[in-house]
């Protein structure tokens, strides 16, 4: 049959096309992932449903204390958003180190999570904010916690006919992101990690959420590490415990970029760094995630 390329002119039109083509359909927007897979001949024949023209999917706004980001919003929009800079620095920082500036002009939030790469840079901040994914289909829409969105390498909980239209989360200015790749631009993360901390007056962490990528088949929440930190102050001994605990949260593999052992050590060290950064205790200027 060959490939087909259909440009949707509205969200309802896109949903109709998605329903019509079912499993053959593939949503494309920026194209920065799919075009590479096409070139490498790793993308079976399909019907591209192009949503690049849907301006209604490009926004960052605040509604009832939630930050809502349209799925078609580019990473370069995120890295230039004063709203995110002030209220959700973890996502802002992730956007700043995502791929490179020219890719960020095309790549979108919806594409980055929809592609479900274990190392997707926008995923850990969204997980740390305990965000939700707004999923539309022809006969309605549903809200999916982002924790349930990723199901495996390149796999999501989306059903045929469904489209991610928005991600939303309760922002937290006490949040941060750290990325370690093999170089400082155009790097695929070897470990990326985000933390969002609710600080009490006395400096204890009432709540803390940590999410880490590239160390398991999907980006994951570091629940064991969180448990060590919750209700305590970000002190050396406490963080040491959490560093040990994060080892049970992750399940890294060895690949062409890094070994399992490297990922384990770096995940530990970066957990410390990201928590301190979220608590605004900067012990370390100049390292990764600067």
């Amino acid at each position: 049959m060959g490939y087909q390329f259909i440009t949707a002119d509205s969200v309802p039109h896109a949903l109709e096309l998605l329903e019509r083509y079912g499993r053959d359909a593939r949503v494309i927007c920026g194209g920065t992932d799919l075009m590479v897979r096409l070139h490498l001949k790793r993308l079976p024949e399909c019907v591209f449903i192009n949503i690049r023209n849907l301006e209604e999917l490009r926004y960052i706004r605040e509604e009832d204390g939630m930050v809502c980001i349209g799925a078609g919003t580019t990473l370069s929009t995120l890295e230039n958003s004063l709203l995110l800079l002030g209220k959700a620095p973890a996502l802002f920082q992730a956007a700043q180190v995502f791929a490179d500036p020219n890719v960020r002009h095309s790549a979108t939030v919806g594409g980055n999570i929809g592609n479900a790469s274990p190392s997707a840079d926008s995923a850990p901040p969204l997980l740390a904010f305990d965000g939700q994914v707004v999923v539309a289909r022809k006969d309605g829409r549903r809200l999916l916690p982002i924790r349930e969105f990723f199901t495996g390498v390149g796999r999501t909980a989306l059903e045929p006919g469904e489209l991610v239209t928005e991600v939303r989360f309760k922002p937290n200015p006490d949040s941060a992101f750290v990325k370690v790749g093999l170089r400082n631009a155009m790097a695929i993360s070897v470990v990326n990690i985000a933390a969002s901390v609710d600080l009490a007056q006395d400096g204890t962490m009432k709540d803390v959420r940590i999410a880490v990528g590239a160390v398991a088949p999907t980006p994951v929440r570091a629940v064991c590490a969180e448990n060590c930190l919750r209700g305590r102050r970000p002190e050396e001994a406490v963080i040491r415990q959490a560093m040990d605990a994060i080892q049970t949260d992750i399940k890294p593999i060895t690949d062409v970029r890094a070994s399992e052992r490297y990922r384990r050590i770096v995940a530990e060290n970066m957990m410390r760094r990201v928590v301190l950064k979220a608590c605004r205790i900067c012990e370390n200027e100049g390292g990764a995630g600067r």
Partner: peptide
């Protein structure tokens, strides 16, 4: 250049995996 000791061939035959310095490096 990372060789594959089992299958043979090169495991990083692209500019994404064979990393040369960028302007930020």
């Amino acid at each position: 250049i990372i060789e594959d000791p089992v299958e043979g061939g090169i495991r990083n035959p692209s500019l994404a995996t064979y990393q040369i310095p960028t302007s930020l490096d």
